[in-house]
Design a protein around this nucleic acid. Structure first.
Length: 564
RNA sequence: UGGGGUGUAGCCAAGCGGUAAGGCAGCGGGUUUUGAUCCCGCCAUUCGUAGGUUCGAAUCCUACCACCCCAGCCA
């Protein structure tokens, strides 16, 4: 096998496209991402967006962002705007290819008329209940509607009157005339058009009949010259209908539909209905709550769009049902942030340290690199003084074996500063440790020669009390406590699986001063703790608010060690 | 009891008749002023099961098993 024909490692869709391009079946690939503007995009959509836009970019083709707005009673402009913003945030571009199914309402109508003329569609006057009854069941064939034999002229006239608004909702529908006995239920004379006397967010009251998904989607694909129409597995049974519609009309383009499995992420849900329910009941703060698997939730959480793209590519594209662990997503986020996020120090649960041999009233400034592997990020100056804050977890009076942070009479390195030794532990009346009296070794200041490199077991982070900036930090954890909250196990409602500890707000955190003015949405690493982002809605220079994006990998904690 | 799909490691996933890639997780070791990063090494004698074809099968054939999707005038 030679390099130019090697298709190994590519998913089946990319293989098909590569073959179609190589064989000349298509000169250029054209895809589309067709969300319905009835809700917010989530991580599952991100997979589809990255596939459709990604494939077009990789093969030098084009991708349309097409809003599938065929049901005015469920759709809103607000969602259209959010979708557009979300796809752009993910890093994709569509030039002038932002379209709507509603752009094609006239052509869709004309196609419907063409089907009627050809005897391939008819107006049915059965009620919705009757249609269901006539449809048969999974194992029993359906029966023809008594209206199935209407003449072309009568169908034409009725459809025109439907269009004019002569009938109320539900009085008639336009159906394809295929086969009521088909083992594939989608072929049992599927509905093509229904009456909906509702204003559409884009076309207003110009129409009162609206095309159904299968018809609108297929014709839109044909109009836009989509070559590869990629959708999820549940539409597999619709493919014969997709083909049937294309067969009846003579568009120059012949799109083909390919299905792939939708993304399932462990410990969360992606049902629009269920996500909305969490919001309605006040169980989360909104569509952009940092715990939500929505694009806006992940953006506010601080997930970089590049990490989401990496995630989509790591997960791959197949036809197999799967459940992807959060660890994969978090690994992508860490990889990206490790490369790009400046380092800083912050203490989330402050414990006071007084350096008894540090001259009272004096302070100094210590330089510290912003990134250990990227000098181009430069350095910052850290204020240092006699009183410091350290993490309460970084001190233990009676530590377990192999604990190498601070302990009574023990030494530890203060990151970017000096080695200190714990001389005394101060307690309040309840016995709680409230302060550590320590000595520091002036010879060990970071970066100042031989003595400075003295080795000690541990290094901890700190913030100088006199210059610290107080802040609120929100620690997030998985939204649900079970892998498949959606599974309705034991008949339990998904909400009963919510993780009560998914949000832990710390209001008395101490940050190094440079962090106060960080622009909203900026991600940094709080060394030894994790990656954090200045909250894009709540943070203020005088009152910073940070969200924990993800913790650092922590082999100490995962080895079963808790607390300190 | 109809139709359409899917089964490769704990979780994903390559494989396309020539002797099981890679990632995540995990485990061991090295470097380290972040218990991070980085670096090395280990981690499927076996591909849902049982037969068959073949010199040779995860790949082809047969049967069986398990799981998912479909009965909106939603998408």
């Amino acid at each position: 096998m030679n390099d130019t024909t090697d298709t190994g490692g590519r998913d089946f869709i990319r293989q098909i496209i590569a073959d179609d391009l190589a064989s000349g079946r298509h000169a250029r690939v054209v895809t589309r991402f067709p969300p319905e503007p009835n809700g917010y995009l989530h991580v599952g959509h991100a997979k589809s967006i990255c596939l459709n836009f990604g494939v077009a970019a990789e093969f030098g083709g084009r991708c349309y962002l097409r809003l599938d707005d065929t049901n005015p009673v469920k759709e809103e402009q607000e969602y259209v705007d959010a979708i557009v913003e979300g796809v752009r945030w993910l890093g994709h571009d569509w030039d002038d290819r932002l379209t709507h199914a509603s752009d094609y309402f006239q052509q869709l109508h004309d196609c419907a008329v063409r089907l009627i003329r050809d005897g391939k569609a008819y107006v049915d006057s059965l009620s919705a209940d009757e249609i269901r009854e006539y449809r048969g069941t999974l194992t029993a064939p359906g029966r023809d509607s008594p209206w199935r034999k209407r003449s072309v002229d009568e169908n034409l006239e009725l459809f025109e009157r439907m269009r004019r608004g002569d009938f109320p909702d539900g009085a008639h529908v336009l159906r394809a005339k295929i086969d009521m006995a088909s083992p594939n239920i989608n072929l049992r004379d599927p509905t093509l058009y229904r009456i909906r006397k509702a204003a559409h967010q884009r076309t207003g009251t110009a129409w009162c009949i609206y095309p159904m998904y299968d018809f609108a989607h297929t014709v839109s694909d044909a109009i836009e010259g989509i070559t590869h129409s990629l959708c999820t597995l549940e539409f597999e049974d619709h493919r014969p209908l997709y083909e049937w519609i294309l067969d009846q009309l003579d568009f120059p383009a012949r799109p083909r539909q390919y299905e792939f499995s939708r993304l399932n992420l462990a410990y969360t849900i992606t049902s629009k209905r269920k996500l909305a329910e969490l919001i309605e009941r006040g169980l989360v703060g909104g569509w952009d709550d940092p715990r939500m698997p929505t694009l806006f939730g992940m953006r506010r959480r601080g997930y970089p769009p590049a990490a989401l793209r990496d995630f989509a590519s790591r997960v791959g594209v197949t036809r197999k049902e799967h459940l992807i662990g959060m660890d994969v997503l978090e690994s992508c986020v860490r990889d990206e942030l490790n490369r790009t996020a400046p380092r800083a120090m912050a203490v989330l649960d402050p414990l006071k340290v007084v350096l008894t041999n540090y001259p009272a009233g004096s302070t100094e400034t210590l330089p510290a690199a912003r990134h250990p592997d990227d000098a181009s990020l430069g350095s910052r100056d850290l204020p240092f003084g006699r009183e410091l804050w350290i993490e309460r977890d970084d001190f233990m009076e009676d530590p377990p074996k192999k604990y190498f942070r601070l302990r009574p009479a023990g030494e530890v390195r203060l990151r970017n500063a000096y080695i200190i030794r714990c001389e005394d532990v101060v307690r309040d009346s309840t016995g709680r440790v409230v302060e550590l009296r320590c000595s520091f070794d002036p010879e060990t200041r970071s970066g100042t020669g031989a003595q400075a490199d003295r080795k000690v077991k541990g290094t901890i982070h700190w913030v100088a009390a006199h210059a610290a900036c107080r802040a609120e930090v929100r620690l997030y954890d998985r939204l649900f406590s079970v892998e498949r909250p959606d599974a309705d196990a034991d008949g339990r409602d998904f909400k009963s699986f919510l993780n009560p500890a998914s949000l832990d707000t710390r209001r008395d955190c101490q940050l190094e001063p440079g962090l106060a003015a960080l622009p909203p949405g900026t991600a940094v690493q709080f060394e030894r703790l994790g990656y954090f982002v200045a909250d894009r809605v709540d943070t203020r220079p005088d009152r910073p608010v940070f969200n924990r994006i993800v913790t650092l990998r922590d082999t100490w904690a995962r080895a079963g060690n808790t607390g300190g």
